[in-house]
Simulated assay, not measured.
Amino acid sequence: MVTAGHCTSGNGAILNPSQSDYIGPVVRDNWKNGHGSVKLSGQSYYSGGLALYRVNPGSSASARIYKGGKTSSSSRAVQDFWRRWAQEGDKVCTGGMMTGEKCGWKVADTQVTFRYSGGTTARDTVVAN
Rank of each mutant, 00 (worst) to 15 (best):
M1Y: 08
V2C: 06
C7T: 14
T8G: 01
G10C: 04
N11E: 13
N11R: 12
N11L: 12
N11C: 07
I14W: 00
L15F: 15
L15G: 03
S18T: 12
S20T: 15
S20W: 01
S20H: 02
D21K: 06
Y22W: 08
I23K: 03
I23E: 01
G24T: 01
G24W: 00
V27W: 05
R28C: 00
R28F: 01
R28D: 01
N30S: 08
K32T: 05
N33R: 11
G34P: 00
H35T: 15
H35K: 13
H35V: 15
G36T: 02
S37Y: 00
V38I: 15
K39H: 08
L40V: 14
S41F: 03
S41T: 11
G42C: 08
G42W: 04
G42H: 06
Q43I: 04
Q43P: 05
S44T: 14
S44N: 15
Y45K: 11
S47C: 04
S47A: 13
Y53R: 01
R54K: 15
V55M: 02
V55N: 00
N56S: 13
N56K: 10
P57T: 12
G58L: 11
G58N: 10
S59N: 08
S60N: 12
S62G: 15
A63P: 10
A63F: 12
R64N: 13
I65V: 07
K67F: 03
K67W: 04
K67C: 09
G69K: 02
K70M: 09
T71D: 13
S73G: 14
S74K: 11
S75D: 13
R76G: 12
A77C: 00
A77L: 04
D80L: 11
D80H: 13
D80K: 15
F81I: 11
R83G: 14
R83L: 08
W85Y: 14
W85D: 14
W85L: 13
Q87S: 12
Q87I: 11
Q87A: 13
D90H: 09
K91P: 00
K91Y: 07
C93R: 06
C93P: 01
T94H: 00
T94I: 10
G96A: 03
G96S: 07
M98A: 14
T99W: 05
T99A: 09
E101R: 05
K102W: 07
C103N: 02
C103Q: 04
C103K: 03
G104R: 03
W105A: 03
W105G: 02
W105F: 15
K106E: 09
V107L: 10
V107I: 15
Q111A: 14
Q111L: 13
T113H: 08
R115F: 06
Y116Q: 10
Y116E: 09
S117P: 13
S117C: 04
G118L: 09
T120Y: 04
T121V: 15
T121W: 00
T121C: 04
A122S: 10
R123C: 12
D124Y: 04
T125L: 10
V126C: 09
V126L: 07
V127W: 04
